[in-house]
């Protein structure tokens, strides 16, 4: 049975980070809680009744657009999918994603992510008549063969994985590391049955896949449940390691006896 209806207290206190460009402080607000409510509802309620200029992003309210990323009680989450019932009693803190420059309140500057995408060689289909491409140019691909690529294409670009990854979050290697989202993107292309481009140089050099030491933190926060590390990053690292040396892969291969 659903847990809805058994909602806890009628009001909750929210400590929302408010400020501009990195300087700011927590402000406390009280919001009325109704059954099934999510954190984004509370933010909207606060906006409509107490702080009209409270900045946050959202669009779909259903986990489909990846706009409402923030940190709830310190954990990277989509606010629209974070049910109040799922949070422990007590105050709820809401802060912007830590890894990106703050703009205002819960809104951060995620433009760096858009720049990464441009570095990835676009889809490059095989020519007519090649395997998977019919004489009229349309593709012939079996469902099982497209499923891997489809898993990666579920990505809603919430950038929570980017926010979590310690290479970005703690070491700020944005200059040399594209982050898990863009390994997922590269993987969606690399594993497309009729794609012919070579993205290994990107992965190795511009994308910096070698910085990833497969901690799997990105996988844990992905709201689309994409197995980022196991299904995208490790296979890509494998490919890259076949061409360039990667100590992490070597160790991983050794541990799992997967001699390449």
């Amino acid at each position: 049975m659903s847990s809805i209806g058994s909602a806890a207290a009628a009001t909750r206190t929210f400590k929302v980070w408010r400020g501009e460009r990195g300087t700011g402080e927590f402000k406390s607000f009280t919001a009325e809680i109704s059954p099934g409510m999510v954190v984004l509802d509370a933010i909207h309620q606060i906006q409509a009744t107490q702080a009209p200029d409270l900045a946050c992003r959202w669009n779909c309210k259903a986990g489909k657009c990846g706009s409402c990323s923030a940190e709830v009680n310190g954990k990277p989450r989509l606010m629209c999918l974070t049910r109040m019932e799922s949070l422990p009693d007590g105050d709820v803190t809401v802060t912007p994603m830590k890894s990106f420059p703050s703009i205002k309140d819960l809104v951060t500057d995620v433009s760096w992510n858009y720049e990464q995408n441009k570095k990835i060689t676009p889809f490059t289909p095989a020519k007519r008549g090649a395997a998977g491409v019919a004489a009229d140019g349309t593709f012939r691909m079996q469902q099982v063969d497209v499923e891997r690529s489809q898993e990666f294409r579920k990505c809603i670009e919430c950038f929570l994985c980017q926010d979590t990854c310690h290479v970005i979050r703690d070491h700020d290697k944005k200059e040399v590391f594209s982050g898990p989202r863009f390994f997922v993107r590269a993987a969606s292309l690399e594993m497309h049955p009729v794609d012919t481009a070579d993205r290994e140089p990107f992965l190795k050099h511009t994308g910096g896949i070698g910085f990833c030491n497969i901690t799997k933190c990105c996988t844990e926060v992905c709201p689309e449940h994409i197995k980022i590390t196991d299904n995208a990053i490790i296979p890509l690292k494998e490919r890259v390691a076949d061409r360039y040396y990667d100590p992490v892969v070597m160790l991983w291969r050794w541990m799992f006896k997967k001699k390449g």
Binding site: G137, F139, R140, Q143, V146
Partner: peptide, 20 residues
């Protein structure tokens, strides 16, 4: 729709490998 496929869209497939 076919053009979208040429640009990289990955639609679900029929048994004979076409767009479902």
């Amino acid at each position: 729709v076919r053009e979208l496929e040429q640009w990289g869209a990955v639609f679900d497939r029929t048994k004979d490998g076409k767009i479902l």
